[in-house]
């Protein structure tokens, strides 16, 4: 079973991603900010990170830049999902190390499709 770490400070957002992804057979763990996300990512192996930008203690860009420099986890794919919809926001996400950028709110089917793609989970 592929494991996904959802990192977002909004509890309702974490719950929503969990519900959508668990229904598709993914295992989901949560972190409430970037710093906690980094702690969990360093402690446990995941197949995908889903990362918000604006969070207390450590923002999503800083988290992704840190992950991309950690030898044990730097290859894990990451989707960045945030409220900021300008083209420079997407560019900043890719520069920080995101594999994909979505605007909030993300459609459940987009989340599922990309989660499958990035984790190599090609189920029907």
């Amino acid at each position: 079973m592929k494991k996904i770490l959802v990192i977002d400070d909004a509890a309702t957002v974490r719950m929503y991603y969990r519900q959508v992804l668990e229904a598709e057979g993914f295992a989901v763990e949560e972190a409430g900010n970037g710093y906690e996300g980094l702690e969990k990512a360093l402690t446990e192996a995941f197949d995908l990170y889903i990362v918000d930008i604006n969070m207390p203690k450590m923002d999503g860009y800083t988290l992704l830049r840190t992950i991309r420099q950690e030898p044990t986890i730097c290859a894990t794919p990451a989707i960045m999902i945030s409220t900021e919809g300008q083209i420079q926001d997407a560019n900043a996400a890719y520069a920080a190390g995101a594999n994909l950028y979505f605007n909030k709110p993300v459609r459940p089917e987009s989340l599922i499709t990309t989660a499958r793609l990035l984790t190599g989970e090609h189920r029907a």
Binding site: I53, N54, M58, D59, T62
Partner: peptide, 10 residues
């Protein structure tokens, strides 16, 4: 700067 914004929010 996202880090600064979020430090200010806190």
């Amino acid at each position: 700067d996202a880090a600064l914004r979020n430090q200010v929010i806190e």
